[in-house]
Simulated assay, not measured.
Amino acid sequence: MKKEKDGKLLIDLCECYISLSNDFSSECLSICVPCLLKVASNKERHEETQKEVEMALLALSNVRCCVVEQELYLGAIKEIIQYHQEHHNLTRLAYQSAWQFLINRLFTDKRLEDMIVNELHFGREASRELEELSKCVDWKREKAEEEEERGKERGEELVIWRWLDAMYDFLYSCRLWNEELAGVIGNVVSVFQASRDNRKRISNQCIYLFKRAAENVIMKIDVLLDEGVVDLILEEMKQSTLKDGIMFESLQFLKNISRKLKEKEVDKPEEEKRKAIKRKIFEKMEEEGCEELITSLYRVISFLNRKYWYCLSTNISDYFVGV
């Protein structure tokens, strides 16, 4: 009984340390990571066990921006993800947390790219989870409803936000592409359209993700065009002001698209394809009435990109709206 009690105490201490700390020592991680992964590897379906697994994986998902040696986690986290893909034994939050822990490792270990993209199919899994979670949320319902119902929905919305955050981190770190990633972009567009009226935190996160996608060297412009991202950004620009930050993110998106379109292709068919995409984007801008807006603001983008862009004169917001 004492051994069991000491084991539970160690698990609690590991969860508290990882959840509350911002600076992880390698010595503590060498104890905490294997301990929590052992808990998370429990495949029993009892509700209490599932909660313990969820807590362990949620704690592990907080391990960011630090080196964790592969031998401490790789075999276990890979088995946890693959077992869930076959048997669906984890809660939605637990499954997302398992992926978040693995995506966080990409910051310091690029050797994981092929396994994440092609073996564990991050694009496919993120796309499916976003689609299924979106069906569980009543997007039209106002926030101020019964507390009990609101709490349940907040849980689903939180997991959606966490998948968007994981995708943002993935696009920051990964330079490997497969076609499954295009499906994620399409589902993020759907989430944005559903959340834009009543769930601003989620819709804003979608915009940040689109900007990150346009920055990523692996992201293809035709994917952003075909999945409706360019249309969405142009539409948002007409409704935003500098005050909510979305105008800035949208301008950055278009600046990154512009940079990609200027890159020269050695391959002639690819160059022709690029020119066709460029024509399509310019036509869309003209249709939306954004052509003059982009031209007028092109010279101030670098200024807006500075650290203190939030401190701009309020008069410039009127200028944005006027244009």
Rank of each mutant, 00 (worst) to 15 (best):
C206A: 15
E180A: 02
F192C: 12
G183D: 10
N198V: 14
S203A: 13
L181C: 06
V189Q: 09
Y208C: 14
I185S: 08
F170G: 00
D197V: 13
Q193C: 15
Y168Q: 06
I202L: 08
R201M: 09
D197L: 12
A194K: 15
A213W: 09
N187D: 08
M167D: 05
A166E: 00
D197Q: 11
A194P: 09
K211D: 13
N187K: 10
N198A: 15
N178E: 07
I202D: 09
I218W: 02
V184D: 03
I185A: 14
R196Y: 15
N178G: 01
F210L: 05
I207W: 07
R212N: 14
F170H: 00
N187I: 01
L181F: 08
Y208R: 15
G186S: 13
F170T: 00
D165G: 02
C174Q: 01
G183R: 06
S190T: 13
L181E: 09
Y168R: 05
A166H: 01
V189M: 10
F210Y: 11
L176T: 07
V188R: 06
C206V: 05
L209R: 07
S190R: 15
I185G: 07
C206Q: 14
R199S: 11
E179D: 14
R212K: 15
F170Q: 01
D165Y: 03
R201K: 11
V191H: 11
M167P: 05
I218R: 07
E215Q: 14
F210N: 02
I207D: 05
M167N: 06
E215N: 13
L171C: 05
E179M: 04
G183N: 08
I202R: 07
V191N: 08
E215R: 12
A213L: 10
V189L: 09
D165I: 00
E179T: 04
A213C: 12
Q205Y: 09
I207F: 07
N216H: 01
L209H: 12
L176Y: 00
L209A: 10
R175A: 06
Y172S: 03
R199C: 13
C206W: 12
K211I: 02
S195Y: 08
F170M: 02
A166L: 01
C206G: 10
F170E: 01
L171Q: 00
Q205T: 09
V191W: 15
A194E: 14
I218D: 04
N198E: 15
K211R: 13
I207T: 10
